[in-house]
Design a protein around this nucleic acid. Structure first.
Lengths: 133, 133
DNA sequence: CGTTACGTTTACGTTCACGTCATCTTTCCT
DNA sequence: AGGAAAGATGACGTGAACGTAAACGTAACG
């Protein structure tokens, strides 16, 4: 028995700190596909996994449309070989992008640290008693 | 003699692959402060460094307003100790954010690689002759 | 049996980050 | 002198990603 309780929209909002509008918007954009109990949306474990990926993608600066593509990558089910192959190729592209971004981020971090070291030295000169940091 | 030739707006656009509108917009938002020769904007080496940081920040998903704050970090000149100390504190915050983002990005990369490995196995099953990748 | 709480759809409003005219100067070239 | 090229300043338009308000359904609670 996998923990596959479905959640209401309200529960989702609290769990992920988003608004109902956002979840409905993502559904309209076909990033989420919650099932229905009559009118009401029911979010499964799968939906939660997808939302997690969506929010992460956003933090990395991807657009919702880019994220929509990416979501299928975590989704490579038993589809046709042609489709699977296409998806795999797309994944390679995105992987390269993410690795490039990571490298650039590391560079940025290093530069910022340099700047901070400079600032720390200046602060030390100005007030040798109470150090910086 | 440091290579400190000033550039026109057109030259900047070609060098950084942005439009004139973008540069004027950044100036309006006080992210850039090019000098003037009469009406015309003149972009110094310093402006180019700032623009590079701006574009990088955007790729990391920061808003222009956040970037505007960040820019001062690469800028800690001989200001008052109070100001310098404030800037340093802000830098620490941003550094932490960037490191968190890097860690998350590494995690995301690892997960994506996992998924791709799964896909590669499936592809191999489907067509043992021509491998994936 | 009313009302409170949670959910729905529809539709217009808003912010950010520019794009796209329209309309001037300034400058350089022939 | 005349005209193209580059740059400037408004001002309005646009796509993405939601916010917000209106109007409605329904299920439980006192």
């Amino acid at each position: 028995m996998t923990t596959d309780r479905t959640m209401t929209i309200r529960e989702m909002c609290e769990a992920f700190d988003v608004t109902p509008r956002t979840l409905r918007f993502y559904e309209a954009k076909e990033l989420l596909h919650p099932r229905r109990d009559g009118q009401k949306r029911l979010f499964s474990k799968r939906d939660r996994a997808r939302l997690k990926l969506i929010l992460r993608g956003k933090r990395f600066g991807f657009s919702l449309e880019e994220i929509r593509q990416l979501l299928d990558l975590y989704h490579m089910d038993d589809s046709q070989e042609t489709q699977l192959r296409k998806t795999y190729a797309l994944a390679e592209t995105h992987l390269a992008e993410m690795e490039a971004q990571r490298d650039e981020l590391n560079e940025a971090i290093a530069e910022l640290k340099d700047q901070m070291a400079w600032g720390a030295r200046r602060l030390k000169e100005l007030a040798p008693d109470r150090a910086a940091g």
